[in-house]
């Protein structure tokens, strides 16, 4: 009886930039995830090559600490490896999925007791340096002009609330405290702001929208 390994013919520890086959580099993200579901390390390497930079940038933006950000990136891609079925190509792009996973994990870390102090220091530093508003964050993240245009259409309250929630990692209750506003108002402004952004971006043809 022979014993068979379960992994695909993997790339081992080589750089994905070096080893990716031409066929994978031309494949869609959905095809890559099919490969990942079949334990193809080349497919994961290609997904990493395409999206790890963006995932790391978001984690770094949220956590500041590069080491923590790297841990989040590692966790996000290992989760994709272990649970590829969590990604549904009918429900959005792979990058959106990975960034959402990254954001959720980063927020969890931000809210942990151990990182609370550094978070407070980070918030204070950001406030002192740049005024910390959503438009600056967006510029830092090299977003498309359409996204910035859509942001300009929000009220100041909507932009600030979304910024504190998304880039600051705050719960809406914390946002309400920070802005000295009722919780219901903050919830409502965030929802209305996202709804408006979505409408603007759909009109501009930005993003992989579902259910349109």
């Amino acid at each position: 009886m022979s014993e068979l390994g379960s992994s695909g013919h993997g790339v081992g520890s080589e750089s994905p930039d070096v080893t990716r086959p031409p066929t994978l580099s031309a494949s869609s993200d959905a095809v890559l995830v099919v490969g990942i579901s079949r334990y193809s390390q080349e497919a994961l390497a290609e997904a990493y090559r395409r999206h790890a930079g963006a995932v790391f940038a978001l984690a770094r933006r949220l956590l500041v600490d590069a080491t923590l950000a790297e841990e989040v990136v590692q966790e996000v891609f290992l989760r994709l490896w272990n649970q590829p079925d969590k990604f549904d190509p009918d429900r959005g792009s792979l990058r959106s999925f990975l960034l959402s996973q990254c954001h959720g994990r980063s927020v969890d870390l931000l809210r942990s007791e151990t990182s609370r102090r550094s978070r407070e220091e980070r918030d204070a530093r950001r406030t002192a340096e740049s005024g910390y508003d959503l438009e600056h964050e967006v510029v830092d993240l090299l977003l498309a002009d359409q996204v910035q245009g859509a942001l300009a259409g929000l009220s100041e309250m909507e932009r600030t609330a979304i910024s504190l929630a998304y880039f600051g990692g705050h719960t809406y209750r914390e946002v309400a405290e920070l802005l000295d506003q009722p919780e219901g108002t903050v919830k409502s402004r965030i929802r209305s702001g996202l709804k408006r952004l979505r409408s603007e971006l759909v009109t501009a043809g930005v993003g992989g929208w579902t259910g349109e």
């Binding site: 930079g53 963006a54 940038a57 978001l58 933006r61 959005g92 792009s93 990058r95 959106s96 960034l99 959402s100 990254c102 954001h103 959503l134 964050e137 967006v138 830092d140 993240l141 090299l142 977003l143 498309a144 996204v147 979304i162 998304y166 880039f167 929802r191 996202l194 709804k195 952004l197 979505r198 971006l201 930005v206 993003g207 992989g208 929208w209 579902t210 259910g211």
Partner: peptide, 12 residues
Amino acid sequence: GYQEVAALLGQS
């Protein structure tokens, strides 16, 4: 839809 918006905000 909101998650897609959030992903666009976070893209880099």
